[in-house]
Structures are given as C-alpha cells and as structure tokens.
Design a binder for these strands. Structure first.
Lengths: 220, 220
DNA sequence: CACCGTACTATACACTGTACGTTAGGAAGA
DNA sequence: TCTTCCTAACGTACAGTGTATAGTACGGTG
C-alpha cells in the first residue's frame, strides 16, 4: 500500500499551485503551508524543490514572465514599444500578484531578461545608441511597473468597501482652504486613477519626449 | 513604587521608534513586538494608540510625508514640477522604507494630499485643464514611485554580496544568441540602474512630452 | 474617600518559515 | 533474490508573528 507515494510533486506543480493560491487570495496571504495543504502534503515536502520561500516566489515570477508575448516585428518602433509596455501591463492586470512579486524581489533569471531583450532590441533597431537605449529601457520599465502597481492597488482598494469608505471620507474631510487643487480636482483624480487611457497618456508623454529627443539628435 | 508608570507612551513616540527600527532593519523586518521591546513595554500596549499594525504603518508613512518641503514659488512650471518630483525621490532615498510603505498600503490622510496639492497647483497655474492636470499628476507620481522604488531595491541588492553574486552570475549565463541586446548592453544596463541622471532622464522625457503637448494645444 | 476610565500587563491562540532527524519507496549492484 | 543506498516526503520542534481576551493598577474627578 502506497502510504507515501513518491514523485507526486514536481517544481512545476508546486509553482502552479502557488500561483493559484496567490491569485485567489493575494500574494501576501500566500503561505508555504497553504500550498502544501492544497497539495495534500507536509510543509517540508516543498523544501525538496525550493530552498526557501523566496526561491518559490522567484519561480512563480519567472513562470508568469514566460507568458509575455513576443514583440511584433511588423510595426514602427513607437508602436513596438507601446506593444511591449502594454503586454507587461496586461499581464500584471491579469495576475495582480505579479506586481508584488516584481516589487518585492530582485529580478533575475532568463524570463525577466526576455522583457529587457524585446525592448532593448526595438530601441537599438530604432537607432538609439547603447546608453540611451539602456536609459530608455529602464525608464519605460519603471514607468510600467509603478503605474500598473498603483492601478492594481487602487482597484483592490475600491473592492474593499471598508477601505473605500475611509478613502472617500478622508478625501472629503480635506479643507478647500488648505488643499484647493485637490478638492477642486477630486472628480478628475478619481476618474484618472487607472484605466487604459491613463496608462496610454503617460506612455505617450514618454514616447513624445523620445521622439523630440530623436529629432534633436539627428538634426545636429 | 511605580510598577506601571502611566503616560510613558504616545502615538508620536511609537511612530518615531517604529521609524527608527524600519530604517535600521528594513520595513519588512519590522514587528510590533520589536517596537514594544524597544520601548520597554508589552506588545499589547501599542494597541492603545493604534488599532492594528496597518494603522501604525499609515502613521509612519504620513509622518514621513510631512517632511516634504513646499513647492518653490519662484520658478518656471517645469522647474517646479522637477522640484516636487526630486523632493519625493530624495525623501524615498533618505528613508528607504518609505517605498515599501507607499507601495504596500493605499494612500490616505492629509500628508499624502500635500504632495498632490503641490503638483496639482503647479499644473493648474501652468494652464493645464483639470483633466490633463489630473492625468499628468498621476503619471508623474507613479513614475517617481516606480523609478525610485526600483532604484532602492537595486541598491539593496548591491549591498547584499550573496544576492549580488547571483545576479551577476545569472546575467553572465545568458547566451548571446538568445539575448543579444541584453548581453551587448549589460554594462550600460548596470550603469543606468538608478542615480540622479537616470531619474532626470525619464523625468525630462515626460516634461518634453508635456511641453510638446502644450504647444499643440495652444497652437490650435 | 470612593469611583471609574484609561493605560498598561499577562496569557493565550492561531499562524508563519524552517532546522533537524526519521522513515519508507524505488533503483542499482552483488 | 537480497542488500544497499539515495532521496522524496514525513513528523516534530522552535522561534517568531499579529492580536483577541481578560485582568490590574494608576490618576483624575465626583
């Protein structure tokens, strides 16, 4: 009788289960014991495949990153940049835990290099010099990360009635004397927190700045 | 004999102590019991002043935000925007835990409204319409947040020798066939991760995009 | 002086990640 | 076939965590 069946686990299975739990309950409510229980296994069984919790985090992150689509080859470079940035944002929106995984742990591994590769390739082909390409890549990447993380967090806020009530209350308690602009623009601020238009607005600002910089370079 | 001296605590003292611990050991290694021990008090004593850990987090965040300087009145609007963004970045660099506090919890409270107020005031004075001002504010804010969080995280990485070694190793194991651009631009990427120039580069892109957009609006 | 609210303590519970030592299933060698 | 060894999974244990609950003593007010 198979009291302790062997090879029921695998790194891939653990990662999949961990991802499910994170998506169901959020990345912070995730625990090793939780995923072990889900797999019907003791907590220590996971340590056969991962040295610690952080390593499992990284594996989940890399798995998610591997879902990123390739850069479309037939498009202008601004459209290619847009595509890469939107893909990353979309992936973060579909898997909200990804934001926390990207923010909380340093990147490493091949999958994260794929994002960089796509973007850097586009920029280099567009004629940017190495330093500018690297700087631009970092700028775009951090913009997507910050902007989308913020969006996700705000969306989560809106879903929790208690937190949402508090936020509204603290907004309305602001005196128009001390915070005239915030009070005046409250409806616009609420409307521009997240969404495709907001994301594209910032992205287009960056691209417009890039285009202008490119003009200046080539004209001299 | 004063076995249980009264009024030794206060919300402000707790916040100060919590901040010290966070800065010394990082925001994630912070615990209520640690603060209590530092204050020579039982863990539950803190619950007189804060309903839970998150509320203490928020109090620390608001305290840090109150350290932000006012917007300089005598400057062009792009310089004013630059000043606000740089101030926030500087504060985050001086208090690395602030990045985690801003990312992990929703904003609320008057102190966070102050940042918004400064930026929104500048943009409104510069002639931006309400919607554009709100959109621009969100874009700038999320850029500063994302960019500086990233910078802080990378700097922390570099300080930990073990993590740093791993990062280098995983970078060098990338094949030049699969990741030509990443491999080619590795030195530039390492150099452009963080620093004032990198931050200003992205900020200037955004400002250039804004300037161009402003031209287009006024010309029509 | 009696009283009561408030500031703090003590105890306890349900969690967490993980170090350590043990056990049993499968494969390989004699 | 029997022995041996490796390793996947187990169980136990420990030092933490946040916090619910109940108890206690001080300080100001009647």
């Amino acid at each position: 009788m198979a009291r302790t069946p062997r090879n029921t686990l695998s790194a891939e299975l653990i990662v999949r289960t961990a991802l499910e739990l994170m998506e169901a309950k959020g990345a912070d409510a995730f625990s090793l014991r939780g995923v072990a229980a889900e797999l019907g296994v003791g907590p220590m069984a996971l340590y056969t495949y991962f040295r610690n919790k952080d390593e499992l985090y990284d594996a989940v992150r890399d798995h998610l990153m591997s879902l990123l689509p390739a850069v479309p080859g037939d498009a202008s470079w601004p459209d290619q940049v847009r595509s890469v940035c939107r893909s990353l944002r979309l992936l973060m929106l579909q898997h909200p835990c990804l934001a926390q995984l990207l923010a909380g742990r340093p990147l490493s591994g091949h999958e994260t290099a794929r994002v960089a590769e796509g973007l850097l390739g586009v920029l280099r082909s567009a004629g940017f010099d190495p330093e500018t390409a690297a700087r631009t890549h970092t700028t775009l990447f951090t913009y997507v990360l910050g902007s989308t993380s913020w969006e996700i967090q705000m969306a989560a806020e809106r879903r929790d009635p208690e937190a949402w009530r508090r936020l509204r209350a603290s907004m309305e308690s602001l005196s128009a004397r001390d915070f005239p602009s915030v009070v005046e623009l409250a409806p616009e601020l609420a409307r521009t927190t997240g969404g495709d238009e907001q994301f594209d607005y910032g992205l287009d600002l960056l691209l417009a700045g890039l285009a202008r910089q490119k003009e200046l370079r080539t004209s001299t």
